[in-house]
């Protein structure tokens, strides 16, 4: 009895989410058609600009976090040196850097990517450090005994051992990334979906603002549903013994 009921629940949840996507999409489309002034292409380009910024910042922060975490796990000296510095920098709210970043990098992509990078990097870094520290000692000893060194060790032991934590941290980071990029685009950066919403709001086009938010919600939802959740499921499936 247990198996079909669990299956039913999953089925039901999936039906509910599909209905949600459909309703949201229909509402968004209806609003798009109602609002005569909407330049659809412009709005989607704005969304794509924001997603691209988050993606680039994500790749950079993942790479940097992996590099620093693995180096710090290797060298106690490096850990003692960098950890206090990172702890201090971590305490600076990301948006507080925005005015400074605008001075140096202007109001475009560089500033946007830099700000998102800061929002993502700390979560990624500290999650990876924590996971490396929490790895069962005998697992890493087994890797050593069976000859895993250098790049092969990273590729076949460290990465798969870290993968579930990386996926979890990625989901959190993407959430933080969306928050901060939209805020940054509203405040200081002149392109992207945040700027689009801001312009629409300032010119009093309420329906345009609503459409923008709806489209954003659908995009974020789809990324979670079709990219992150399957990855999370796949990587955590075999992890607990």
């Amino acid at each position: 009895m247990k198996v079909p009921s669990r299956w039913m629940r999953r089925r039901l949840a999936s039906v509910v989410t599909t209905i949600f996507i459909l309703v949201a999409a229909i509402v968004a489309l209806a609003l798009i058609f109602k609002s005569a002034k909407l330049d659809t292409a412009k709005m989607f380009l704005a969304v794509i600009a924001s997603i691209s910024r988050i993606s680039v910042a994500y790749v950079l922060s993942l790479g940097a976090a992996l590099l620093f975490a693995v180096m710090m796990a290797k060298s106690k000296l490096l850990e003692n040196l960098l950890l206090p510095v990172f702890d201090l920098f971590q305490s600076i709210p990301g948006l507080a850097i925005l005015p400074l970043a605008v001075i140096y990098f202007g109001k475009g992509n560089t500033t946007a990517i830099f700000i998102i990078f800061l929002a993502m990097f700390w979560t990624m870094l500290f999650t990876i450090i924590g996971t490396l520290k929490g790895l069962k000692e005998d697992l890493s000893e087994a890797a050593t005994i069976f000859g895993a060194t250098g790049w092969k060790r990273f590729r076949y032991f460290t990465m798969p051992a870290l993968l579930p934590a990386i996926i979890t941290a990625s989901i959190i980071s993407w959430g933080a990334g969306w928050e901060i990029i939209i805020a940054a685009e509203i405040i200081g950066i002149s392109t992207g979906i945040g700027a689009f919403l801001n312009t629409a709001s300032e010119s009093g086009q309420t329906s345009l603002v609503v459409v923008g938010i709806m489209v954003l919600a659908i995009v974020v939802f789809m990324i979670n549903k079709f990219i992150w959740l399957p990855l999370l499921h796949k990587t955590t499936k075999y992890q607990t013994e």
């Binding site: 069962k136 005998d138 087994a142 000859g147 798969p160 075999y238």
Partner: peptide, 23 residues
């Protein structure tokens, strides 16, 4: 190992292959 220390993300076969692959 006392507590087996198998790599949880690998199948039984892949676990046995691990040492051979590394070598």
């Amino acid at each position: 190992f006392q507590h087996f220390a198998l790599f949880p993300w690998l199948t039984a076969l892949e676990n046995v292959k691990f040492g051979l692959k590394m070598r």
